[in-house]
Design a protein around this nucleic acid. Structure first.
Lengths: 133, 133
DNA sequence: CTGACTGCAAACGTTTTGCACGGTA
DNA sequence: TACCGTGCAAAACGTTTGCAGTCAG
């Protein structure tokens, strides 16, 4: 709770109750869609507006606190920006997990083949999770 | 240059002039957005409708002829489905290139760490292309 | 010839905007 | 207190749908 408030301040965002709730929900869920954010938010703030959610999400993206994750064939979700990681998506239950895997070899190879100077990588893997297998 | 008419028939799609144009534009551009597709299409078919483009793109996706590529911070583009490959996006000029890089090591490692049975991978790398460097 | 495709217009869902009020620093 | 953020309503988008006329097979 105090942690979330600090986090918002670090990113120069006023710590309003709505923002605190948004950030802690993104943190707790790991990945969350606008729709789910709104639904869950309504329980605590029955008159919260979707406009407020969109405005805040966009501000948080601009400040570099969160980012949008675009996943093939599904709606976008948002996550806190942290260490680089990959996304694993379960094709049965739809759950999304982060994992850390070394990708240097692939990136070096891509750099060599393409001549690009690579700065960022976005990797999503789709398959079946252990629970659904 | 591909045999667009043949390709459409292979995927059980009637070869209308509009569809032929759509497929050849996707092929020529490699990656193209709905908006660009529509703009360029208007030159040859001044009364083409956006609805026609959407309907056809969706049908082509269902038939497995093309797929949507979602790229962070930009609008989606569409491409013909072919060999697995990665996408390189230039952060200066925005151009998108395909490259083939072995990703087995990363996928194996991800599989081992997560316990997922991985079926597909989507990789986008962002950096500066040789022309813009 | 017949079902599928096109273009138009309307409907829809999602995201953004403008404004008056209310709350944070 | 001075802003900035919120909620509401309306507007702006992007995409989908229904329908009547047209065309590919």
């Amino acid at each position: 709770m105090i942690e979330t408030t600090e986090l918002l301040k670090e990113y120069q965002l006023k710590a309003t109750p709505q923002r605190i709730k948004i950030v802690s929900m993104v943190d707790e869920h790991g990945h969350i869609s606008i729709e789910d954010l709104y639904k869950e938010m309504l329980q605590e703030f029955p008159s919260v507006s979707l406009a407020t959610i969109y405005k805040n999400i966009n501000q948080m993206i601009e400040s570099g606190l969160i980012q949008e994750v675009k996943i093939p064939k599904t709606k976008s979700v948002f996550e806190l920006i942290k260490e680089p990681h990959l996304h694993m998506v379960c094709d049965k239950c739809g759950k999304i997990e982060d994992i850390s895997v070394g990708t240097d070899k692939v990136i070096e190879e891509a750099q060599r083949l393409s001549g690009y100077k690579i700065k960022e990588s976005f990797i999503t893997l789709r398959g079946t999770c252990p629970d659904c297998a």
